[in-house]
Computed example of a mutant assay.
Amino acid sequence: MASDYPHYFIGIPIEKQYEHWLGEWQTELKEKDLKYKSWTHPADLHITLKFLGAVSDKDIKELKDNLAENFRYQSFQVNIGNIGFFGKQNNPRVIWAGVENNDLLNKLQENVENVCISLGFTKESRPYRPHITLAKKAKTDNRFDQNLLLSFQERKEMTVSRFCIFRIHPSSSPKYEVVKEIILK
Rank of each mutant, 00 (worst) to 15 (best):
K88R: 15
Q77L: 04
N102D: 11
F86D: 11
N66D: 08
F76T: 02
C116P: 06
G120M: 07
V78F: 07
V99L: 06
V99F: 05
G87S: 06
D65M: 06
Q74R: 11
V94A: 01
Q89L: 06
L104Q: 10
G98H: 09
F76Y: 05
F86C: 08
F86R: 03
Q109F: 02
A97D: 11
N66M: 12
I117E: 14
N111G: 11
Q109M: 04
Q109P: 03
N114Y: 01
I117S: 08
N102G: 14
L105N: 02
L104K: 02
Q74C: 11
C116M: 04
N91Q: 13
L119N: 07
V115S: 05
G84V: 04
L119C: 08
F76E: 05
L119Q: 12
S118K: 00
E110Y: 10
N114E: 15
E110R: 09
K88N: 13
G81H: 14
R72M: 01
R93T: 08
G81Q: 10
N111W: 12
N70W: 01
I117A: 12
E69L: 01
F76C: 06
G84H: 04
I83Y: 01
F85A: 14
G87E: 11
N114L: 02
L105D: 09
F86I: 07
N82P: 02
I95L: 15
N91V: 13
E110M: 09
Q109D: 10
E113C: 11
N82L: 05
I80H: 09
V94I: 13
I80K: 10
N82M: 06
S75D: 06
V99G: 15
C116Q: 13
V94P: 04
L108R: 05
D103H: 15
V78Q: 01
L104E: 11
K88I: 07
E113P: 03
V112S: 04
N101T: 04
E113H: 15
Q77I: 07
K88C: 09
K88A: 15
E69I: 00
I80R: 06
N101C: 08
I80P: 04
F76D: 05
P92F: 01
N82A: 08
V112E: 03
I95G: 09
R93K: 13
L67K: 01
V112N: 02
V94F: 09
Q109E: 11
I95F: 12
Q77R: 03
Y73A: 06
L105W: 02
